[in-house]
Design a protein around this nucleic acid. Structure first.
Lengths: 169, 169
DNA sequence: GCTTATTGTTTTAAGCTTAAAATAATTTCC
DNA sequence: GGAAATTATTTTAAGCTTAAAACAATAAGC
């Protein structure tokens, strides 16, 4: 009866009442929606305009930054995908002539993946347009919005990493 | 030679120089990283803890909100995935006893998907833990951070929708 | 009522993704 | 130098995802 009348301090409340985390849930759903929405559109345009998939574009984006190629493991870490996934992805990019596989001169287990000349040229064209798409998709955010969002996402990333790191050791 | 010495006003600059959109690009990559990081962890925990996949969890989350079931098309719109995708997803959830298919009484083309009693019970357990995971993952954000991020993501979502709507009509 | 267009779903083919197991080469440690 | 552990990659099996085509039922326009 008196539940609502008795004021509780934050500590007591945290211990005695089941906490309400709906706000965080809504935040997560909104973050996911934004991400899904933009990613889907980028996928659609990459296919429509260049007949390329997002994973292939992402892989080439990594290779474009590294001048002397990268090993599968490096790519795997950077792209946050499994090694097995990359095997097939690289197969298809080799078949289409965008990248080549070479055995590492220093480690015979490792494969070094590098872009071909044509792959690089084609990627740069795609990347140029891609940058404009992103600018357009984020076009209604002003300079302050962008700075604030950047900072908050950085904080979110750290928070998530902290939660992930801590959960099994 | 004098390029750097001549000051240009914003308008002139915008027209004559290739614009630099690296900031928006970094913003997008950071948004995507956050989303991927959290989503990956949620997937991992759902599998580990309940042996369920994220798409199945998401589908059940939609059904849990709608008391009298939903048609495939409704689910497709809400979940932002293709119809064909849902066919297989529902197949598997029917096989595991979480949901049932019934033909719509008003439209013989439409299938109404609804949760079974056991499916609902199991989902609520999962949803309860899931909410805590999210609260933990976002745990380092204070109340103001959350409000600000919520607002900025809403703005981003609108901006993206505007850009998507406008691009082919 | 009949034709046409629309809507709802499934099928198909291709590609993406993962975890787990298998394979191969290197490094570490006696 | 040889056994054991680690590291790099591939294979496998299962599931997710999409676009496009096929199919089925309903709605709209005459």
């Amino acid at each position: 009866m008196d539940d609502q009348a008795i004021p509780l301090d934050a500590e007591t409340k945290a211990v005695e009442m089941p906490e309400d985390h709906r706000e965080e849930l809504r935040l997560w759903l909104r973050l996911l929606t934004c991400s899904t929405l933009i990613e889907g559109e980028v996928r659609r345009r990459l296919r429509e305009r260049f007949d390329v998939t997002l994973p292939r574009f992402d892989l080439m984006a990594q290779l474009d930054k590294a001048h002397d190629g990268m090993t599968l493991s490096d790519l795997s870490k950077r792209m946050m995908v499994s090694n097995g996934n990359l095997t097939g992805l690289v197969d298809r990019l080799v078949a289409s002539g965008h990248v080549v596989r070479t055995v590492s001169p220093t480690d015979r287990r490792a494969m070094v993946i590098s872009m071909t000349e044509e792959g690089r040229t084609e990627f740069r064209t795609m990347a140029g347009e891609h940058e404009h798409w992103i600018a357009d998709l984020f076009g209604d955010l002003n300079a302050k919005d962008r700075t604030d969002l950047m900072r908050l996402l950085a904080k979110t990333k750290l928070s998530a990493r902290r939660a992930i790191k801590g959960d099994d050791q």
